[in-house]
């Protein structure tokens, strides 16, 4: 465990909490993609299946439970909460998530560490996490005006990925047999997807203006 890894996990948790807080406090989920949230829940569930029999550390187990619980809560708010569900931007959130799920599943069947059910599900979750933000980015692009909390949510998520890359570099340099190229490549793709967003986020921040994405 190193400082980059811990920072990454905390940033990830913070991003989810910012989103939950926004929904809870404003009773609105405007600008949030339900598709992305559902994909993240699928990522967590398929990756953390081993929660019950593979105990690695209390740290890992607590985070796994918290990630599954908090993303379920977000989905519950968006689909079931009487006030919040009315603010859901259904007409703009039209990304077909099968376009992401099917290729990731096929890729996981072909490129994996070992051909077994749990290994393939785990690998699927790595690929799916890399692209799960796409419906959210498309929604932001369509609605253009991004409120501060939604902007902060996506920014913190991107930052979390950047810190994972620093963690991999650190581990590669300090641990003798550390290698996991499937995870690295997926992580690079995932972080790359945020670069464009980062640019506009930082521009808006520097000029202390509201974040607006170009069409």
């Amino acid at each position: 465990m190193n400082i980059f890894r811990v920072s990454a996990d905390i940033l990830h948790l913070l991003s989810i909490l910012v989103l939950l807080l926004k929904i809870h406090a404003t009773k609105s989920c405007a600008g949030i993609s339900l598709k992305t949230q559902e994909l993240y829940l699928a990522v967590f569930v398929t990756r953390y299946l081993d929660l019950f029999w593979n105990f690695h550390s209390l740290y890992n187990s607590v985070f796994k439970v918290v990630y599954i619980a908090t993303s379920s809560m977000i989905i519950w708010y968006m689909k079931r909460h009487r006030g919040v569900k009315q603010t859901y931007d259904k007409d703009h959130d039209t990304f077909r998530y099968l376009f992401l799920i099917v290729p990731c599943a096929v890729l996981a069947l072909i490129v994996n560490g070992r051909f077994s059910l749990f290994e393939i599900l785990w690998t699927f979750s790595i690929y799916l996490e890399a692209v799960a933000i796409l419906p959210q980015l498309v929604l932001l692009q369509r609605t253009k005006n991004v409120d501060n909390l939604t902007g902060n949510y996506v920014f913190l998520l991107g930052l979390y990925r950047a810190f994972y890359i620093l963690n991999w570099i650190y581990r590669y340099a300090t641990e003798p047999h550390y290698s996991a190229w499937i995870v690295w490549l997926s992580g690079l793709v995932q972080t790359g997807l945020y670069l464009d967003f980062f640019y506009y986020y930082l521009q808006a921040w520097k000029q202390s203006k509201k974040l607006q994405l170009p069409s």
Binding site: G113, Y178, S179
Partner: peptide
């Protein structure tokens, strides 16, 4: 391996 080392990450 291509993944094994990262199994302790989240």
């Amino acid at each position: 391996g291509p993944v094994e080392a990262a199994k302790d990450e989240l």
